[in-house]
Every structure is written in C-alpha cells, then in structure tokens.
C-alpha cells in the first residue's frame, strides 16, 4: 500500500477518526428531525475508514478491524428487508413503519420508530459496501 511514512498524518488520524465516528453516529440519529440519516451516517463512517487507509496500510486496518465488511453489507441489506417483512407479520403493508414512545427513568420520553431500524440497515449496507469496495481496490492495487 501507500508508503507515506508520515508521523503527523498518522497521529492526526488517530484523533480525527474518533471525531468522525462521533459525527457519524450523531448524523445517523439526527436524521429523523434534522439533516442526516442512514445514508449520510453510513458514508461518514465509511470515510473514516478511507482516512485510516490513507494514513496506515492494509495490514494495520485488517488487524484493527477484524470485520468481514461483505457480511456487514449483507446484514444491512437483510435488516432493511426484514423490517419490511416485520410489518407484514403485524398485518400491515410491506415496509409500513411504526412509532413507539415510552418513558425511561432519568431520561424522560423516548420515541422509537421502526424507521430507525430501517435506517440502521441502510447505514450498515452503505458502510459494508463502501469499505468492501475500498478494501478490494486497495488490496488489488
């Protein structure tokens, strides 16, 4: 892989990746009422991997993230389909989403929507696929 042996880049990356990850999670959950959502969250998450790839080499990433991203992508796609099927179980049309709200101690009212599950599937699919693509190309080159 890239043979840029730059200490600065690597050190900065260590910090920045966590900022990006936090941003990704924030964007993912804010999608309901503000800009953000599954796609963006997933893409931001994936871009942090791109940064790591640029700063380190393949081996480090493999060791640091022993995940099969094909599987991540596949499970994302599966979750998306399953949330749709879930509606059928309750006698609703395919992919009909529902909202539950309940109150937690200390935190207060919490709204939970099946859209969140759906979006999580989308995000996983995006992350899995984008990282798979990048890893395939990087490995290949």
């Amino acid at each position: 892989m890239l043979k840029i042996n730059e200490v600065i880049l690597q050190t900065v990356t260590k910090v920045v990746v966590f900022i990006i990850l936090t941003l990704a999670i924030y964007l993912f959950f804010s999608g309901h009422n503000a800009p953000g959502g599954g796609f963006i969250g997933g893409l931001v998450l994936a871009s942090s991997f791109v940064l790591m790839l640029l700063a380190y080499d393949m081996e480090t990433i493999r060791k640091g993230l022993p995940l099969d991203f094909k599987l991540v992508g596949a499970s994302g796609a599966l979750i998306v389909v399953l949330t749709g099927l879930g509606a059928i179980v309750f006698g609703e049309p395919f992919l009909k989403q529902a909202i539950f709200s309940f109150s937690l101690p200390l935190y207060g009212r919490v709204e939970f929507s099946t859209v969140t599950l759906f979006e999580a599937g989308v995000a996983l699919a995006v992350v899995g696929v984008v990282v798979t693509i990048i890893l395939s190309i990087a490995e290949d080159v």
């Binding site: 696929v129 984008v130 693509i133 395939s136 190309i137 290949d140």
Partner: peptide, 10 residues
C-alpha cells in the same frame, strides 16, 4: 452513482 462509478473503475 457512487457504487456504479466504483464498479466502472474496477
């Protein structure tokens, strides 16, 4: 488009 571009590229 991103996915397709990546595929084309490879």
């Amino acid at each position: 488009n991103f996915a397709i571009t990546a595929f084309f590229l490879v």
